[in-house]
Design a protein around this nucleic acid. Structure first.
Length: 635
DNA sequence: GTAGGGTTAG
């Protein structure tokens, strides 16, 4: 990644005011709209609305639509208030109608746009919906996605005579593709007489949305012209569907073709790096931004902070965070949550109070980070205090995830009874994550009796989730209950549940390498296995004994020992040790939880080789140094 | 007088 071609500098995108505020030009034409700029509460909004009515300005549809837009999109209004406002308009025109429609599409439930359309059509307040209206309705159906409503909207578009307009046809293509009906999408696409720039991009976006990646790739490769948006659609689409490696691959291609990445691409690329633990590539993005003297926007800054934290590099995250000029609740939340998973609970809490001092209010996600911080730092009392402060101080109703944190908080420190009580008393139905937190606590504290009850419950709840079987099996194994282990294995086989293969990623000089247990596809495979045997020898000398309790079921002891020694994590470690200078920190990202054998081995290896190993597993970070781990062996 | 395709944290 560092060898990517130098690019022509561009200015950072102009900072535009939020979409609910009228532009200076509009204010000069309609002085009344200036008041919206000083509107900072719902009360002021109501006052503004009342003034518009008494002065008669509300009868100007343009003024009405701007107030409507402000009501629907700004934090000082709501969709329902905007809807009320709309219903009071004497003669709303299509433009005003579309304004509200657009707000619905951007809102939490886009299909409400379709319901609103039906409502207004029935009330005959709308004479004839225009082409923009159908573009918006089709977009709503793509986002949901809802093929049945999409087809209905298509029929309406035909009825009102807009179905042969390119702008509407583009959205038809997007809607059918997003809903997974590639056949109809192609039909609609072929029906477009004169394709414009957007047509193919809409098709591409639809392919990605419905998970048709091969189709997307093929279409992308066939395209004769690819503009900046095409690349955005492709990269962002892949990243958002968790195809991180492919997203980075396309980002690389984009740079090779000398196309400028825009902010949204950079944010998504950083996101992909965060997920993969690809810090080298993430650092490349940072250098790229610096090279272009692009000021960190809140979003890019937050994405960078998040990336560094998810790569286990807390110091770099602090550095970026300090340099961010504007910090909103998202930025603070990323930092707090990231410190928590890195085992820096106290610092996370410190940051939380600093955030408050700077006048930024926490949201529900912030509290997930705060509670996580308490639970990983073993601060039960603080955690409980923060939990109750949510409703009492901040007026945030805890959701199921917050209860999940609370169960984890009690359970992790061994207060299993209190954890169970939380589950009994919580106001909503506990989901599998809540039971999962309790199960993990049973594993940590070796409570196989409760573990068995909870594990069985979870397996019933999610009979396809192999992780649940594995965790229960580990609990049985740790207690020497081998007959139960065998029974569980039989059930898994019967139900056709296969264990998700563990894999480890390591980011080296801008490339992400992936290892699975016992794999030998890597070109350096031979050297890796030689290194591994050296490592094992040194481990044995240091008194290591393979812990096979979590190994695959149904093997004899010796087989198990070999199996754990070839775990993907150990392969990645060997690979890292071969290919880095002594003293370099090695960062590994795992798709599963670290097994206890790998954990012990990695601890010892950090001392033997005098290295820092940062391993990120499914749930948190392990910083190995001098033979100890930052998780204090609780994970 | 007017809005398209990519963009929102754990």
């Amino acid at each position: 990644m560092s060898s990517a071609p130098a690019l022509v500098p561009v200015a950072s995108p102009p900072r535009s005011s939020p979409p609910w505020l009228p532009t200076p030009l509009l204010v000069s034409q309609y002085p009344m709209l200036a008041h919206l700029h000083s509107c900072t509460s719902m009360k002021q909004l109501h006052q503004m609305h009342a003034n518009a009515i008494t002065s008669g300005a509300i009868f100007d549809n343009f003024v009405a639509s701007r107030i409507l837009s402000f009501s629907a999109l700004s934090p000082y209004g709501s969709l329902s208030y905007a809807r009320l406002l709309f219903s009071r308009l004497r003669k709303p025109d299509t433009f005003t109608f579309n304004t509200l429609l657009r707000a619905y599409v951007c809102g939490p439930d886009p299909l409400n746009a379709v319901l609103f359309y039906i409502d207004v059509l029935n009330s005959s307040a709308l004479h004839r919906p225009d082409n923009h209206c159908f573009a918006l309705l089709l977009k709503a159906c793509s986002e949901a996605p809802s093929l049945s409503l999409g087809v209905m909207v298509h029929a309406q578009a035909i009825k009102f005579g807009w179905s042969s307009l390119v702008s509407v046809q583009n959205f038809l293509v997007h809607m059918y593709a997003s809903c997974g009906d590639i056949g109809l999408a192609k039909l609609a696409f072929n029906g477009i007489e004169e394709c414009d720039d957007a047509s193919v991009n809409m098709m591409l976006g639809g392919f990605l949305k419905c998970g048709c990646f091969e189709g997307a790739r093929q279409l992308f490769d066939e395209m004769s012209e690819r503009d900046g948006i095409t690349w955005s659609v492709m990269i962002n689409g892949l990243v958002q569907r968790s195809r991180f490696k492919e997203g980075l691959e396309f980002f690389r291609r984009m740079l090779e073709e000398k196309v400028e990445p825009n902010e949204s691409v950079l944010v998504n690329v950083l996101n992909a790096c965060a997920h993969l633990g690809a810090m080298e590539q993430g650092m490349w993005v940072e250098r790229y931004l610096k090279g272009k003297s692009i000021r960190f926007s809140v979003r890019v800054g937050t994405a960078l902070v998040d990336m560094y934290l998810k790569c286990g590099c807390v110091e770099k995250a602090y550095e970026i965070f300090a340099r961010m000029e504007e910090k909103n609740v998202l930025a603070w939340t990323a930092m707090i949550g990231g410190l928590a998973i890195n085992g820096r609970g106290e610092e996370a809490l410190q940051l939380f109070s600093q955030m408050e001092m700077e006048g930024v209010s926490p949201n529900d996600v912030t509290f997930i980070g705060v509670l996580n911080a308490c639970s990983h730092a073993g601060l039960v009392d603080d955690g409980v205090k923060y939990f109750s402060s949510m409703t009492e101080v901040y007026g945030i109703e805890p959701n199921v995830q917050h209860y999940c944190c609370l169960v984890d908080l009690y359970g992790r420190c061994g207060m299993l009874h209190q954890a169970e009580e939380v589950i009994k008393k919580m106001p909503m139905k506990p989901n599998s994550a809540v039971w999962g937190a309790l199960l993990n606590s049973c594993r940590i504290h070796g409570n196989s009796l409760l573990g068995e009850v909870v594990g069985k419950k979870l397996i019933e709840l999610e009979s396809n989730n192999s992780g649940r079987y594995v965790l229960l099996s580990n609990i049985y194994a740790a207690n020497g209950r081998w007959e139960n282990v065998a029974e569980l294995r039989r059930v898994m086989k019967e139900r056709g549940v296969t264990k998700l293969p563990g894999s480890s990623f390591i980011d080296l000089k801008g490339h992400v390498y992936e290892f699975v247990a016992g794999d030998n596809v890597h070109p350096q495979s031979k050297e890796i296995y030689v290194m591994l045997s050296v490592m094992m020898k040194k481990l044995m000398q240091a008194g290591y004994k393979a812990n096979t309790g979590e190994a695959l079921l149904g093997m004899d002891e010796e087989e198990k020992e070999t199996a754990v020694s070839y775990h993907s994590e150990k392969l990645a470690l060997a690979f890292g040790l071969i290919n880095t200078e002594p003293g370099t920190t090695i960062r590994i990202t795992k798709n599963l939880r670290v097994c206890s054998d790998c954990h012990t081995a990695t601890k010892m290896l950090s001392k033997i080789y005098d290295r820092v190993f940062v391993v990120r597993d499914r749930g948190r970070f392990h910083h190995f140094k001098d033979g100890i781990c930052s998780c204090n062996d609780f994970w």
